[in-house]
């Protein structure tokens, strides 16, 4: 009903409306705060962690959670909370780097393929098809075997696999953007392809990109954990949530099983929080969501 939509009030200011919508999304706000808290706790670990890193207390050995050691200690008597916070630095940093690098590659490929079309598009899309049919975990394991398992190569390999999804999404968006009249209008006033992409295409992809970064962080945390758990990821003595999980995996059925639960819990919380933020971003960046909606209200 055109008449009805015409009546809905227009947002007075894009940015403040964006914030309003995001904040109204309670779960997103909760997720955002949780994430912020995790980041501060992990990267502020030298300040916030109850004990110094790697401080062993062999006499103490493994103890269950107590008032002094909130999450207990491991076999070497190290405070588990401290260890998890430091490991979180690696996990979060890895995930964030992977998300940024893979999004950057994906956006670049997607924009080029979608905007240029023709053989460029065909080539890039066949490559992404290839990635879809190859089992990613096996490929990852193989690549890491070859490249070594430094955090740098993990980021490299995960990004090289992760970009295909965003490339597809971006390509689709660019294909439809390319047909929009304001792109033609820019061409008429004399803008070249590079200028059109920077000024008109990329800004209109902002929403897609932001959402994708959030979702990519979540999936990178999980993949890194999986790889580390399988022994292909971050190698000891360096710790990540994934390899802490892996080291504790032999403890199932013993009294020290809490050593398995806690890293898993942190992974779960981080992934959930990032997903909520992603949902919130998606809704907040969609101007059609929320305000003035005519649906979903029954007559009193």
């Amino acid at each position: 009903m055109a008449e009805v939509t015409a009546v809905a009030k227009l947002p007075s200011n894009g940015r403040s409306k964006f914030l309003q919508r995001f904040i109204r999304h309670r779960l997103a706000l909760l997720g955002g705060l949780t994430l912020l808290f995790l980041f501060i706790a992990c990267f502020g670990a030298p300040i916030f962690a109850p004990f110094p890193k790697n401080q062993q207390d062999l006499l103490l050995g493994p103890v269950p959670p107590s008032f002094e050691h909130l999450l207990g200690t491991d076999d070497l008597g190290r405070d588990y909370l401290t260890e998890i916070l430091y490991a979180g630095q690696v996990s979060l940093l890895l995930a964030l780097s992977v998300a940024l690098v893979s999004t950057a590659i994906g956006v670049l490929v997607g924009v080029l393929a979608g905007y240029k079309g023709g053989w460029v598009d065909n080539l890039f899309m066949r490559i992404t098809d290839l990635f879809l049919v190859v089992p990613a975990i096996a490929l990852l394991a193989l690549a890491l075997q070859g490249l070594g398992r430094s955090p740098f190569s993990i980021v490299l390999v995960l990004s090289l696999i992760g970009w295909t999804y965003i490339a597809r999404v971006v390509r689709g968006q660019v294909l439809s953007l390319r047909e929009r009249e304001f792109i033609e209008a820019a061409r008429v006033i004399g803008a070249n392809d590079r200028q059109i992409i920077w000024k008109h295409v990329l800004p209109n992809l902002g929403g897609v990109i932001a959402v994708n970064v959030a979702l990519a962080v979540a999936s990178a945390i999980i993949i890194e954990s999986t790889l580390s758990f399988l022994g292909f990821g971050v190698q000891p003595p360096q710790t990540s949530w994934g390899n802490m999980l892996s080291q504790a995996s032999g403890l199932i059925g013993t009294s020290k099983v809490y050593l398995l639960y806690f890293p898993g819990l942190f992974i779960l919380i981080a992934v959930l929080a990032v997903n909520f933020v992603g949902d919130g971003l998606r809704d907040a960046l969609d101007p059609r969501s929320g305000s003035g909606s005519m649906q979903g209200r029954k007559r009193k």
Binding site: M1, A2, E3, V4, A6, V7, M294, Q295, R297, K298, R299
Partner: peptide, 19 residues
Amino acid sequence: SGSGKSLTSAAIMGLLPAN
């Protein structure tokens, strides 16, 4: 557009939105 003419026909048909 926006004068309410289509809404008038929707009202006669009994096909107005729920709110």
